[in-house]
Write a protein that binds this DNA or RNA. Structure first.
Lengths: 116, 116
DNA sequence: CCCTCCTGCAACGTTTGGTTGCACATCAGG
DNA sequence: CCTGATGTGCAACCAAACGTTGCAGGAGGG
């Protein structure tokens, strides 16, 4: 709804998924079900510490959840929160899409007017 | 297609639309049709110079196009490139969405197995 | 007990978004 | 033509974020 843009996007969620490394991490976690800082860093072009920081950020915005298991700490994606993020992506995308469509319609209308 | 993730996302495009200020700028340009660094900065919480840098970035990835007009420089959104960006947003979103669906199905399957 | 593996913290470097300050170009009025 | 207002561009500087290295500490396996 909202005649305006509905750009009520959680900026924290956006910046969380805005980073390429974090997107890749979410991808890996979704593929493998879970993972630790160490296992993820082995499949990424960055160090374990960098991954650990990213996991901290993702955890703070609730996109992943930690589960201590012995000497390691397994992370899993929070389905609900990721679905929320996906919805926001779609929201911005469709808002822009709507504006593009509207511009196209106006352009076509002008074309028709010219041809009269 | 691609059993893998289809995560063939232009990282430049992503980081361009990843910044909140740049997203807001694209929104304003879409709403008003065009704008300059000065007019945009008046509607944003940052200075003209910051906006100018962002316009430079958006121009380099092709999301906007500059048109010198006298002493000012008007910027307009490139429809095709923005549509491309929207497509990539949708791409990542639907990839994650698909994985979430798949996980949900597996979870339900396990539930059923348990009940046997 | 010792060795290995995984985690956590701290210091440091580099890139990026933002600011201020100043010099240059263009349009309007006298 | 000259002056002033407005718009742009460049450079130096700050702060936050991403990434690194180095080291100390906790949990398992021989």
């Amino acid at each position: 709804m909202s005649a305006a843009v509905a750009e009520k996007v959680d900026d924290d969620l956006w910046s969380a998924i805005g980073d390429p490394t974090r997107r890749r991490m979410l991808d890996l976690l979704l593929i493998e079900g879970d993972g630790t800082a160490t296992t993820l860093s082995q499949q990424l072009p960055v160090t374990r510490q960098a991954v650990a920081k990213h996991l901290g950020i993702l955890d703070r915005v609730g996109l992943v959840r930690a589960t201590p298991a012995g000497r390691e700490k397994r992370y899993r994606v929070d389905d609900v929160q990721l679905a929320h993020a996906v919805a926001q992506l779609a929201s911005v995308g469709s808002a822009w899409d709507a504006r593009l469509q509207r511009i196209k319609r106006i352009a076509e209308a002008i074309q028709r007017t010219r041809q009269d």
